[in-house]
């Protein structure tokens, strides 16, 4: 029973990372109705920036806003430079561009920071939260930050003019343009925010898995699984989905002997396929009806 509880709790903690990743996936999906396959590499890149700043001796409280801000600008610029020119191209072109970005970021990271793994200290300190606690300080921090990001996002979309404009631009680009919203600017803003959230996820997970250029590949897959499970149109769903994926992954790793500790990726594949087949709109998503 103790083991079971322990696994659920630590699944919940890793779930926080997947939830962050899923959130950034959903952000992009909301903005352009695409899944950004380079999201993980972009997040890893942000994490490397944070690591570099730390290595230069900046304190954590300065590094985090700086890394997140730079990531925001980076995402914004990538959209403006790479994606804007082919906005209206067929889906295949978009997917190819994502794959191209993936290759560029991955290779650039290997080039700049090489492929050796790097330990990253936790921003929340080491050790358990209190004596005998199931959660470590870092795990508690991860969950808290995920929740904070979700609340901030919700507030942003609910209470700010820009948030409203972004929702409008995503829901109905033509009408939004007619009421004076700069739709393509909103798309770029969505990219920036997604990449900032990705940076948060990267910085949170780096102390757990060690930093290297391929760090995020599997995490992105879990993020996708979480986003699909929760519904690609719903940020709250993405967070719930992320937590569920984390818990399922941990329990399966512990209790299904075939899976074992290391081979958990097929679970994400399985989850994605099952959800897409059985309930493509996810737990909380809206069903997208296409008019013909």
């Amino acid at each position: 029973m103790d083991l079971f509880l322990q696994q659920i709790v630590s699944g919940f903690a890793t779930g926080g990372i997947y939830a962050c990743m899923a959130l950034s996936v959903v952000m992009i999906y909301q903005a352009i109705h695409h899944l950004n396959f380079a999201q993980g590499e972009m997040a890893t890149f942000s994490t490397f920036i944070a690591w570099q700043l730390l290595a230069w001796g900046l304190p954590y409280f300065a590094v985090i806003p700086l890394a997140i801000g730079l990531s925001f600008i980076g995402g914004f610029v990538v959209e403006r430079v790479v994606f804007k020119p082919i906005e209206n191209a067929p889906v295949l072109s978009h997917i190819v561009i994502f794959i191209a970005l993936f290759a560029i970021f991955n290779s650039a990271m290997g080039f700049i920071w090489d492929f050796s793994i790097k330990p990253v200290p936790s921003a929340f300190g080491e050790g358990p939260l209190y004596e005998g606690s199931l959660l470590s300080k870092h795990q508690t921090g991860m969950i808290a930050v995920t929740m904070l990001v979700l609340v901030l996002l919700w507030a942003f979309f609910r209470f700010t003019r820009v948030g409203l404009a972004m929702r409008a631009a995503a829901a109905n680009p033509q009408s939004a343009r007619l009421v004076g919203i700069r739709v393509s600017f909103m798309t770029a803003l969505g990219w920036g925010m997604a990449s900032a959230i990705g940076a948060v996820a990267g910085i949170l997970i780096a102390p757990v898995v060690f930093l290297e250029p391929n760090m995020m590949l599997s995490i992105l897959l879990y993020g996708f699984a979480g986003a699909v499970l929760g519904g690609l149109t719903s940020p709250l769903g993405a967070v719930i989905g992320g937590f569920i994926v984390g818990i399922v992954e941990n329990l399966a790793g512990t209790y299904i002997p075939v899976v074992g500790g290391e081979l958990k990726l097929p679970i994400a594949l399985f989850l994605i396929v099952v959800v897409l087949v059985v309930k493509p709109e996810g737990l909380l998503g809206r069903r997208v009806v296409q008019r013909v």
Partner: peptide, 20 residues
């Protein structure tokens, strides 16, 4: 049952999970 982007996602997952 999967169009465009979803199919890309499912096959993406397959490719990443394959070595494992």
């Amino acid at each position: 049952r999967l169009d465009g982007i979803y199919l890309a996602l499912a096959t993406f997952a397959l490719a990443i999970a394959m070595p494992q």
